[in-house]
Amino acid sequence: MPFSTIWSRLRSRIASRATRLDGKNRLPVRLGSNRIYILPTKAGVAFFILLVVLLLISINYNNPPGYLLTFLLAGIALVGIFHTHRGLSGLLIAPGSALPIFAGSRAEFPVMVANPSRWPRHGIQVGWARVETGPLKDVPAAEEQTFLPSLPAANRGELRPKRVVIATVFPLGLFRAWSWVALPLRCMVYPAPAPRASLLDQHNAAPDQGGERPRAGNPLEGEEYHGLRAYQPGDPLRRIAWKAVARGSELVSKEFGGAANLEEIVLDWDRLPDEEIEAKLSRLCRLVLDAEVSGRSYSLRIPGKRIPTGNGPRQMHACLTALALFSMLDAQTLDEAPR
């Protein structure tokens, strides 16, 4: 039987066993001996072939120093198996919160590796199955390290990796110990924003009924300055009084009044030109970003969902999440509904 077939079957059995163990996971996941696997690396296989050659030469020439060297190297390698396995044994693995990204970027998934033992763990890697693992890191005794394995996010939606791989080849590089761990990792992937658009385009954004149409230029132009007030979460950065903050004051925001404050921007799916669904979502994504920068309140209307008026990071995240999770079935249902 070819070696590649044997190796493939062995990997399948190990993966199926790891899957059964994953069903019993409780966070944080502890890497016990029952879920750590170890096999020789390519360097380890070459090393053992060298040992066999040295042994045959020693037997052929009845060379005692050759026997001594062969068994000394073999003993060091066997001790290395124990230390490589111990490098992972007892580690605690827990997931972190991944930051949202836009489609076309790489999603980073924080994975915390804690070392509860009294000795440091060297050369730890965290990555994905059948994908090149990340950089090597040391985890000091009684401390933890955060690893950031990444994946390309080509499409919008919620990205959920299946399993992470924690591995090490320390100290000799002759053996690789690894463990598969299923963690509840997820990352929200927003649609890729279209090229910068203008909120004044009547096809893209409409003022709320009874309000004025947004004006061109500076969003604060025409507003009357009322003074300073305490900063509130969600206030645009451009309204923060940085000069007052530099003088040692607490974080304060500029307060304006006038017609511009009464405007509400409505980002409506139906007012977009007839385009493909993904193109519409990209355009709306850009409009949400522009509306947030403008400092005005805005709402979002898409088939099957409406985000109420608001502004700030929470409003932007709610709108972009609705766009990321938008289902094509919702649009088809709306188009087929009687009008």
Rank of each mutant, 00 (worst) to 15 (best):
P2Q: 06
T5K: 04
I6W: 13
I6Q: 12
R9A: 06
R9N: 05
R13I: 00
D22N: 05
N25L: 01
L27T: 03
P28I: 04
N34P: 00
I36M: 05
Y37T: 01
K42C: 04
G44L: 07
G44F: 11
V45D: 00
V45I: 13
A46Y: 15
A46M: 15
L51S: 01
V52T: 07
I57L: 10
I57S: 01
N60A: 07
Y61E: 00
Y61D: 03
P64I: 08
P64V: 06
Y67W: 01
Y67F: 14
L68P: 04
G75N: 08
I76L: 09
V79R: 13
I81C: 12
F82V: 15
H83V: 10
H85R: 09
R86Q: 06
L91Q: 03
I93V: 14
A94D: 00
S97D: 05
S97M: 11
G104L: 12
A107M: 14
E108K: 08
F109R: 12
F109M: 06
A114W: 07
S117C: 06
R118D: 14
W128R: 02
V131T: 14
E132H: 02
L136C: 06
D138A: 07
P140Y: 09
A141P: 03
A142N: 09
E143Y: 07
E144N: 08
E144R: 13
E144P: 03
T146N: 13
F147E: 03
P152W: 00
E158M: 15
E158N: 06
P161A: 06
K162N: 07
V164P: 03
V165L: 04
I166R: 00
L172R: 12
F175M: 00
R176V: 05
A177S: 12
V181I: 05
P191W: 01
A192W: 08
P195F: 10
P195I: 01
A197E: 03
L200N: 13
L200G: 11
N204A: 12
N204I: 04
A205W: 07
A205N: 04
G210S: 02
P214K: 08
P219R: 10
H226L: 13
G227M: 01
R229I: 02
R229F: 11
P233D: 09
P233V: 06
P236M: 10
R239N: 08
R239E: 05
G248P: 08
E255K: 15
G258E: 14
A260H: 15
A260V: 01
D268A: 13
D268R: 15
D268C: 06
W269V: 08
D270C: 07
R271P: 03
D274K: 05
E276I: 01
I277H: 11
E278C: 11
K280N: 13
S282E: 05
L284G: 00
L284H: 13
C285K: 12
R286P: 01
R286F: 02
L287W: 11
L287A: 01
V288R: 03
V288Q: 03
L289Q: 10
L289M: 09
E292I: 06
S299V: 12
P303V: 11
G304A: 12
R306A: 10
T309A: 13
G310N: 11
G310H: 09
P313R: 11
A318H: 12
T321K: 15
A324E: 02
F326R: 08
S327C: 09
L329R: 14
D330S: 15
D330H: 15
A331C: 10
D335K: 15
R339T: 03
